[in-house]
Structures are given as C-alpha cells and as structure tokens.
Design a binder for these strands. Sequence first.
DNA 1: TTGGTTTGTGCAATCGGTTGCACTATTTTA
DNA 2: TAAAATAGTGCAACCGATTGCACAAACCAA
Lengths: 373, 373
Amino acid sequence: MFISYSNYRIQEKIQSLSFYIKQEVISLARKNQVTLSDVAKKAGVSPSTVSRVISDSSRISKATKERVQKCMDELGYYPNAIARSLAKNKTGNIGVIMPSRDEDIFLNPFFPETLRGIVKGAATFGYDILLSTNTEVGDELQSIKNFVRASKVDGLVLMSSRINDDNISYLLSIDFPFSLIGTPYIEDSRINYVDNDNFMAAYELTKYMISKGRSKIAMIAADPSLLVTKKRIEGYKRAIKDCNLTCDEDYIFIGSFDEETGFKFGRELIGLVPRPDAVIITDDLVAFGAIQVLEGLKFKIPEDIAIASFNNSIISRYSQIPFTSVDVNAHDLGLESINILVEALEKGMQNRRIIIPYEIHKRQSTEGMFSTE
Amino acid sequence: MFISYSNYRIQEKIQSLSFYIKQEVISLARKNQVTLSDVAKKAGVSPSTVSRVISDSSRISKATKERVQKCMDELGYYPNAIARSLAKNKTGNIGVIMPSRDEDIFLNPFFPETLRGIVKGAATFGYDILLSTNTEVGDELQSIKNFVRASKVDGLVLMSSRINDDNISYLLSIDFPFSLIGTPYIEDSRINYVDNDNFMAAYELTKYMISKGRSKIAMIAADPSLLVTKKRIEGYKRAIKDCNLTCDEDYIFIGSFDEETGFKFGRELIGLVPRPDAVIITDDLVAFGAIQVLEGLKFKIPEDIAIASFNNSIISRYSQIPFTSVDVNAHDLGLESINILVEALEKGMQNRRIIIPYEIHKRQSTEGMFSTE
DNA sequence: TTGGTTTGTGCAATCGGTTGCACTATTTTA
DNA sequence: TAAAATAGTGCAACCGATTGCACAAACCAA
C-alpha cells in the first residue's frame, strides 16, 4: 500500500516529528532549563514554597530557606523571566521610543548620549531596555502600540515631543506609564518629564550675542512642531524684543538637523538685507555646515558674523573655528528620564518635572566685534 | 475586642487588599487586556481555534477565520507577547551586548553607528532589541547570563571580541545562538561573525604611506587583547616587513580609545630616534588628539609627519587638517550581524562569516613629501 | 485542658497563550 | 456502498512562574 504524501496531516506529523527531533537535539545541549518544580522536588517541598524562598517571604522558616537555597545553587536554578512576567504582570523592561528618522538619529550625538544615560539609569534599577525598531519612518506610534498592547514593557521613555503629539495622547488615553524627554505640548499632571529650559537657553544665548555688540541676529532652526525648537525660537524672539531690536521673520530659517541645512541657509543668510551679524543655530552639525559655507564665501567668523549653536558636541570644540555651543547635558536627561519613570512605576509618583541645567560654552565664534563687557 | 495590628497576617491582608484596590483602580483604565478566550467566547469557538486563526493555520475553514477575525477586530484584540513567549519558548527579542566601558562607548561613533544597523536589521525581521545594562564595568558576562538564563532573548549580538573571550566561551559551552561583530579568537564552525578585514586594511594603509615616500612608520593602537587591534597591528607589521623596512617595537604604542592617548603618545612619538615620518592610529579621536599635540609642537602635517586612522568619523573629515581614515562601515557590520543571527535562529544556518568591505578615505594628512605615484 | 494565635507549608487557580491528539462530519476512493 | 481519507474543531495539557486560601502543627494564655 502506498502512503499518500499529499496527505497534509501526515506532512504535518512529519514536520512536527522532525521538529521534535530537532528540539530534542537542541534540548540536549540548550534548553536544560531548571524549573522551580525541579528545585521543589529536590528539596522535598512544594513549588509555592520555593517561590516564596525566592521572594524571601517572611513566612518561610529559616531552615527551609537554607535547604531550598542550597538546592537552587546545586541545580544552578535561575528564574525564568518570561514566566515570572506572565504571573506578575510585570516585565522588568522599559521601552525606549526613538524618533524614527533612521539616518539622523545616531548621526546627532544627542541621541547616543541620551541613550547612554538611559542605559545607566536602567541598570541601577535593574530594568532592561527594549529599543523601538520602527520599520516605517515616522511611525513611532506603531512601535509604542506594539510594546504596550503586547505587554512587552512596564513603561516607556519618549525621546522627543511635538505639538499635538499623537504618542503622548495615546499613552494618556490608555493611562500607560511613561516619561518624556522634552516638554509636553499640554499641561497634564500625569505627564512626568525632564527637559532643559530651552527658552532660557536661547534667550541667554541671544542676549550674550547682543552683549557682544551684535544687533542683527538670525536663527536657523529645525521643525518648529518639535517643542524644543519652538521653545528656542521663543526665547530668541523674546531676547530680541527685550533689547528693543527688531526680529524680522525673514531672519528665521527652518531646516533639519543636518549639514545640508547649514550649507543652504548659510548661503541665504548672507544675502539678507540688512545682513545679519550673528546667527543662532539649533544644532552643531548645522552650525558646522554654515561655518564651512561662510568661510568658503570669505566671510570672517566671528568678525563678520558670530555663530552659536546647541549640543556642544565634539565638532563645536574642534572645528577650525571652535564655536560657542550650549551643552544640554544629554546624559543627565536620559538618566533622569529613567529615575522619574521608575518612581512612577514603583511608587506611583506623578507630576514630576525635572529641569536639567544647560551650560553655554563660549568659544571663538562669538567673540565681540567690540566687547561691551 | 481589640484587633492586634501586630498580627502580620492581618497586615498582609490589608496590604494585599489595598493592593487590590489600587489594581482595581488602575485596571479600570489600563489592563483592559482582551484575551484570546474573550475572542473565542464572542465568536463561539474554542480558544485553540482562535489561536489557529492567528497563526493562519490551514486547518481552519475560511468562514471561521473570517468570523473570528471580525471578532478580534471588534474587540481590539492583540496577542500578549509574554504569554506567547512562554508557550512557544521564543521571545522575539535579540540581546545586544555592548562593551561596558560606560564613558567610552557612545563617545566613539562606531557603537552608535553599529547599533543603528542592528536596530534597522532587527526591524526588518520583526525582532526587538534588548540592550545590555551592565552595572559593573567589564561585566558583560553577567549581562549575558541574565539574558540567557532568564530566557529573555532568542539570540545575542556581541559587539566586540577579545583574545580568550569568556563571553564567547560561555555561549559556546551552552550552545546558545549568537553572532559576533569582529573575528573570534578561535576557529569554531558554530560562530557566525561579521567583520572587516582589519589585517588588510592596516596593511593597505601602511603600504599607502610607504608609497607616499614614508619609511619610518609608527603606530598607536589600543588594547591588543581586542582582536581588531591585534589584526591591525599584524597588518601593519607585515606591510613594513614586505617592504623591507624595519619595524621596531618602540614604534608601537598601546593606549585606549580616547583623546588623552593621542596627546600622550603624540608627544612621545616625536621623541623617538629616528623620528617617525608617519603614524597609523586605530581611532579618529586618538588621531585627533595626536594632531593637536603635534601642531602645538609646531610639527607640520603632512610635511613632517603623515597621519592616518580608522573609523572615518566626522572629525576626520572636518579637523583643521582633514585626515586619512578607514571607513569600516559600522552600519553594515550591525545590519549583517542581525542577518546572520536571524538566519541561525530561523534556519539553523551555521558557519557564516561575512567580511564587510572597508574604504580608505584619503585626505590631506597623508599627502606625500614627494609622491611615488 | 481548651480554645485562640502564630507559624510554616501545600493546594490549586491563574497569568494568556500553543499544540498533540481525539473526535465528528464530510468527501473521496475502490 | 462500504472503507478510507480529508476537513474542521475542541479538549486538555503545558510553558514556568505567583499567590489567595486552607490546613496542620506548635504555641500560648486562662
């Protein structure tokens, strides 16, 4: 009698059989997971007792604890985090949602720096970091939902905030714990965030320019739907106004966080009438691009035009013309974002807002034409 | 009758009660997890059927599939990843083990770049990235064990390899799937890795120096227990030998991946007799430090001494004197490390070794005193 | 001695899925 | 037309923990 191999049931069976064989082979080496029950059996107690020993329950006698502990050591037992997560409805993971521009993200040292702080913070509290891996650009919400709805994380860190931020709205609507790096677009006591005072930073930077004798100050910013950009533009405008200078909208350029933006607007900048004698730029890389262009066009920095920017990355220090830049302390932003999140998770703390101090590193690019100081 | 509050049982009860109240409150908003059984109930089928609909089993009729699907949509069902992990013994997570130097890691753009590739690769295959968060410096093995023994990940990516690497030995000993960025210290068909040909890169770079008329070539390297360093030193030595030049051990300096190393050895370098007319450095940041020192000491680059290094980071392009640097293509290293790991996980592939091409970006710092080309 | 505590442990349900196997109804084959 | 194969679904065990409650033994006060 022929066996009909078209019989998919058999195929299934074979498949599952070979699966088992493979698993078996693998399991000989790996998958030698010692379980709680194994320990219990060896120690002659019930699994619940072992579980209580692990959590150091006060209801287990010292003698039993020691005996069980010994068995655990001997068997090399290590609790299965997945099973524990399921039972306790807690994962021990914190999800980090990175802006999904792919190219940009790690180019700008702000994110790696922040991530370093995050990792460090998580380590001290015993959490692991789950990184969002969006395939689609701009689809952070999808990553968030994947993490949240699949219960893969206990809480989230959002690394940026925008106006009418969908991510924030969603998380608030389902009341899921998160902390934000940046200032939220709405006041809501449930939002824990950490940020610099970007308004003041830009304000102070602009004032500093003015104190150095500059009066026609331009700005190159990024997408103003990003709160950080918005705040900086506001601070800049306010300083101009407070000093009774005029702030033409022509003087504000909107680009992105790359060198190209610096090239492009550096060129346009010097075409303005009257020509600016200073420019504030929201990122070092952009500033660097602008400097290159301006130098190429034979403008002198800082004599003809002063330049200052944000992030205080390595290139601001080591560019041909070292330029003034605001250190936002990205590492601490990351670290504190974890602190407040963990406090929210473990102690139910709310309404935490932490302002991380910035620091203006003054360099050659903003030296005065004539100093008023 | 008084209630004895010292009765810890009662205290426990109260605690658990308040816990429940809190949980209850929370669960009103969050924790509205729709489960498989809910869907099953609504669709009037058994949970197993729903599960099979999710996995699109061929054994469920089209009609049932559609009906169940509709119920899932209506209820907003989303499978719980934890429960699934437990049942399938697969997490969908890949652990990334970063060298645990804390400060160094993100300072050097190599790691962020690599991580970017890793994240991108993981996204295409639908895996999430779990980052190692070692508290103790140099204690990657602990992180690895935490991930592996707790079953938090399906596989691992190691971002560096050393001689007699404990991490590799451990993973091999328990036969746990991983891929390596770098070349392993031992031949083992079970190790899948991706690397540059660091020997050839250094060899070629050295030859290039020689072709430019240099004959006394020094090297500043990092810890030679790191395979990457070892290979580069070997390539360098070989090139020297092949050209019948002498390679004094004095010409080789061992430091770390920071500017300080550049400062220190830049200074020592020019004290050597005979004085080197070229130096190969294993990292841009170090090279940058060296350049600063040398310039400070009034040495001309490239006239007095040529400089070349590795990683082609932004500072190699934009330093006052742009310097020659080898682009190791960190992004692709990361991306491929995921590719081979996933192939190992899902298809049992072994013995994969991928060499990512490097590219020497030639810049001003290696222009010849006199060109032989 | 008796009834009430206090202590220490185990039972069994639960977390939310997956899957081998059994079972029925329908179709195909001879 | 009877036997065999196929299709569609459900039962129940299982993944590896946690935890409310029950229960037995030891202890204590009156």
